[in-house]
């Protein structure tokens, strides 16, 4: 054991029972800047900028939520977009049939997703490892099949929603702020879990389930809890996204590419950390935008994005946050754990 790894006796504040606030100004500054973007009404392509922002904040929410189960708990779900889609359809139905605004409906959609998360967790969490991944893919396939054939919501053709009654230069603003609230909410949830005994229990489960059980953890109950919590915000942002697009089709929500993107962002940024998925979402959405503007929406764009990701993973095999932490080089502003 190298002596350099030993904590000096007088540095017991390192064992603080409270999370450090060091370096917090940077994420807060970024948050304020993001919150101010809709005021930049003078920029060209104002609505386009907001639309990219809406998608970015949506991905931050999706991957951060996925991370509760896939990162902290170690159960890789490739079907989490099920909750995203069900959230979208729930809010759309509440809107078209009961006139409930999807912004309010999004909260209900989140709770529907949460309840379905309990049910899905109850079934799929009887397996682990590769079998769990496959069972979540099965969940996605079954859900897709259901929605493709459910005429009440338009089947494969989908359903359309009334546009939000606002002048064109304002239509994106409410969606932008709704997504921002969801993103902050999901990060807050992830942060709270990471700093609670629940988070410790989930990480113990990810490491060694038998040991966690013997240490007194009801692993099955907490795994289902993690599954349900990780389904809530995807339901919320599904509702907002559906209204933002003003039409819903199974193809928008239920392709495995959506789930794969959540996984990818979390892995690139650092699975299991609080900041990792956020960074992963910024990186991949940013990369996509740059590469589309440079190379158009061609295949080349995909190749270049893929190459950059491979390079990132070569240098940061545990994701950006994970590898920087391992090397002792994680700046305090990115250490939210």
């Amino acid at each position: 054991m190298a002596d350099s790894t030993v904590i000096p006796k007088d540095k017991t504040e390192l064992l603080s029972t409270k999370p450090s606030r060091e370096g917090w100004w940077l994420p807060m500054l970024v948050l304020v800047m993001i919150a101010l973007v809709p005021f930049a009404r003078f920029v060209d392509a104002y609505n386009y900028v907001l639309q990219v922002g809406i998608a970015l904040l949506m991905w931050v929410t999706l991957t951060t939520s996925w991370n509760i189960l896939g990162g902290y708990t170690g159960y890789i779900s490739l079907g989490h977009n099920v909750f995203f889609g069900i959230g979208g359809y729930t809010a759309a139905l509440l809107f078209t049939h009961f006139g409930i605004s999807p912004f309010i409906g999004s909260v209900l959609a989140g709770f529907v997703a949460l309840l379905l998360g309990v049910l899905a967790g109850f079934i799929t969490l009887r397996t682990r490892g590769p079998a769990f991944i496959i069972s979540t893919i099965a969940l996605l396939l079954v859900t897709t099949l259901w929605f493709d054939n459910w005429e009440f919501v338009g089947g494969v053709n989908g359903m359309s929603l009334p546009l939000i009654p606002l002048p064109l230069s304002f239509v994106k603003v409410p969606f932008y702020y709704a997504m921002l609230v969801a993103a902050v909410g999901s990060i807050w949830l992830g942060y709270r879990i990471a700093h609670s005994k629940l988070g410790l229990a989930l990480r113990a489960i990810a490491q060694d389930e038998v040991k966690a059980e013997v240490a007194g953890i009801d692993t099955r109950r907490l795994k289902i809890t993690a599954f349900a919590l990780s389904a809530f915000f995807p339901g919320v942002v599904g509702a907002i996204w559906g209204y933002n697009l003003s039409y819903l089709r199974p193809l928008i929500f239920f392709t495995i590419a959506v789930a794969a993107q959540m996984v990818l962002m979390a892995i690139i940024g650092g699975r299991g950390s609080v900041a990792g998925p956020v960074i992963g979402a910024f990186l991949i959405v940013g990369l996509n935008e740059v590469s589309i503007s440079q190379f158009g929406g061609s295949e080349l764009n995909l190749v270049i994005t893929g190459l950059i990701l491979v390079v990132v993973l070569l240098f940061f095999p545990m994701g950006i946050v994970g590898s920087l932490r391992e090397a002792g080089r994680l700046p305090a502003s990115l250490d939210w754990d």
Binding site: H195, S196, K197, L200, A212, G216, I217, R221
Partner: peptide, 17 residues
């Protein structure tokens, strides 16, 4: 700290340590 985790929700949502 893992063995200090209790089953009740209040403890679960309480601080890690």
């Amino acid at each position: 700290l893992v063995p200090t985790i209790k089953a009740d929700t209040r403890s679960l949502l309480g601080p890690k340590v």
